[in-house]
């Protein structure tokens, strides 16, 4: 079973005629990484929102096509249902900074999913160690620098071991050391069977995080497989 299947996805935000997505087909299997690049304003964030079921359930607009997450229609699933399967690191890390300390922030998603306190403590400590975040313990997430916030957002999104990790420009603010740790964590998850959907703009010369990734360019609402070379 594919983790994510999108077929013939079209979407225009309400009040606009422009099709941000104009017939997108994409499927991602277990243990597979897909890298989407393309110009800013090309629809990468919109595609991520579709994969996370936020579109069409929470955003108004003209949606058509078929979207399935873990074999279930995204419209029926909605974000609450999708939260079982998805870890979404948003472009704005501040959207997920609500708890008083970094540890509480990371634990939040596990608590919501009803995990045992002892298990939560172990998972939080584990992900903080792997991402080199020991120095952030006890800090107020809202008072961190934006790169540090991205790191906290990433830890919070992957701590429950989701089947699909969506990263929307989520590594762009990390320094080289932290970026390497984040990529190592993601690759380990992929090898453990998780699927990765990574949106990163092109042209920084800093991508190519996964040599094994399938690469696409999203431009004018259409997805084209990138020819390697």
């Amino acid at each position: 079973m594919s983790v994510l299947v999108l077929s013939g996805i079209k979407f225009a935000y309400s009040g606009s005629n422009r099709k941000v997505l104009d017939g997108v087909d994409l499927s991602i299997e277990k243990g597979e990484a897909v890298l989407i690049s393309g110009p800013s304003g090309g629809g990468k964030t919109t595609l991520c929102l579709v994969a996370a079921t936020i579109i069409p359930t929470r955003v108004q607009g003209d949606f058509s096509g078929m979207a399935e997450l873990m074999g279930q229609g995204t419209r029926k699933l909605g974000p609450s249902g999708a939260s079982e399967y998805v870890g979404y690191v948003m472009q704005e890390p501040e959207f997920s900074m609500i708890m008083p300390t970094v540890e509480d922030e990371i634990a939040f998603g596990l608590e919501n999913r009803g995990r045992e306190p002892a298990e939560v403590a172990v998972a939080v400590e584990g992900v903080m160690t792997r991402l080199g975040m020991e120095g952030l313990a006890g800090r107020d997430p809202r008072r961190l620098s934006s790169g540090e916030k991205q790191l906290v957002a990433m830890a919070s999104a992957v701590v429950h071991k989701p089947q699909l990790v969506i990263l929307d420009e989520a590594l762009s603010g990390l320094d080289d050391d932290k970026r390497a740790l984040a990529l190592a964590e993601l690759d380990a998850m992929r090898q453990g069977g998780a699927a990765l959907l990574i949106a990163e703009h092109a042209g920084t010369g800093r991508q190519a995080p996964f040599l094994s990734a399938r690469r696409y360019v999203l431009q004018d609402g259409r997805l084209a497989e990138e020819v390697s070379g």
């Binding site: 939260s83 948003m90 939040f108 919501n112 045992e116 999104a157």
Partner: peptide
């Protein structure tokens, strides 16, 4: 959105 995607659903059991 972020809250919902992180499983924040007050109807459900929470630890």
């Amino acid at each position: 959105w972020a809250l919902e995607l992180r499983g924040f659903n007050p109807g459900a059991g929470r630890t």
